[in-house]
Design a protein around this nucleic acid. Structure first.
Lengths: 205, 205
DNA sequence: TTCGAAATTGCGCGCTCTGCAAAATTTCAA
DNA sequence: TTGAAATTTTGCAGAGCGCGCAATTTCGAA
């Protein structure tokens, strides 16, 4: 289930990746996903339009395929870590362990970030995926903190964790300074341990 | 600019409200916005389909019209309070001053909440509006904390504030307990002052 | 080599959303 | 009161989306 079993599975994965790549490439070329059609993406990847929609419900979903996969792996990592760590530490370490900076090309990530933040439909899609992550993780957080998923505390903690993930990655992407991604993530998670109303120790950041 | 000026303005506002109401009514009746068409909403409000799209870009936007208006007023309140209060207090007090519980019908809010959380398209629309709010508020937060909008700190603080607004309202809506909305909001904001990793003082909530 | 499962494809359909221009309505001044 | 002028409403057309369905092709396993 973890390893690529049959040849069929591998071809499907390749097609999906090809479609996602095509979507990103075309969106960059045309400076915005809105001026790219599903037809073009399918053609670029060498499949029919109908096949495109077999793999992705929308072009936005295609462009954010990597992101969606990543949240899936994060969730798995979180679930594992939550068994032995406090939930906040589990979030921080699971986030760091994703190793965005090694797994993906930095410039490509910046391009994607750029595209997302200048397209309402992509912002909505990404936010929607975050909310999906929220819904899937709330049980873990509730269990880990001995609260109910309807309580206030686990919602706030989970929301803070997701905000931290998103903000620290985006901040590092736009201006890494002299920090590694892991350091930036760690710093961001630390803010909430002290209390977010405490002003930052250093000017800036 | 604040008061209803001309008759024309009032009619437009009335039409917009009628369309939004129609959207909510139909979505409740049909148990989901996906099974409601723009045609139906327009017909219910007594205008043409084309006119509906003059007022709203989508049925989701129509359903969330109140929400969008509210975030606008929140932003205005925040801008004002940020001149004299610490930004965190400004957020808390501006949120409380919205008085959702008095301005809107509780049961209607619950219905809307129910609809949103069982519809991917509405989740995306609402999340998108939150991101819009984020983009509009980040300058205020940066200025108020003496940081740059590209820094990590203002993003985390703003993200935490938005999460707090959303979570506390939703929590209170699903289970008010014996608290008022204002009390719940206050409690939620307090969590982040102590540090979110501190477990809640009482079991539950 | 052949069979059966799985993937691809074409077609059709209802719906969304926008631009454009005509028609209806409202406003305001003469 | 009446006649432009401005504004809003509307219909129409068109590009595009997303999905169900059924036919066809492809591929892996026996």
């Amino acid at each position: 289930m973890a390893e690529p079993t049959g040849l069929r599975e591998r071809k499907k994965a390749a097609t999906k990746a090809a479609l996602s790549d095509a979507a990103l490439r075309l969106a960059i070329a045309k400076e915005g996903i809105e001026s790219v059609t599903a037809d073009e993406i399918a053609a670029e990847a060498g499949v029919s339009t109908r096949t495109f929609h077999n793999y992705f419900p929308s072009k936005e979903a295609a462009l954010l395929y990597d992101f969606h996969e990543t949240t899936g792996r994060l969730l798995a990592g979180l679930r594992e870590r939550a068994r032995t760590q406090p939930i906040w530490d589990a979030f921080r370490d699971a986030t760091i362990d994703m190793h965005f900076d090694e797994k993906f090309d930095i410039d490509e990530m910046r391009c994607r970030e750029q595209l997302i933040h200048s397209s309402p439909s992509l912002i909505k899609e990404q936010s929607g995926q975050f909310m999906e992550l929220f819904a899937e993780a709330i049980d873990i957080v509730a269990a880990s903190t001995g609260t109910s998923k309807d309580d206030l505390y686990p919602r706030l903690l989970l929301g803070a964790a997701l905000v931290t993930m998103k903000s620290s990655t985006e901040h590092w992407l736009t201006d890494p300074g002299d920090r590694t991604l892991a350091e930036t993530i760690t710093e961001a998670f630390t803010y909430f341990e002290r209390g977010i109303t405490q002003p930052p120790p250093l000017p800036g950041n």
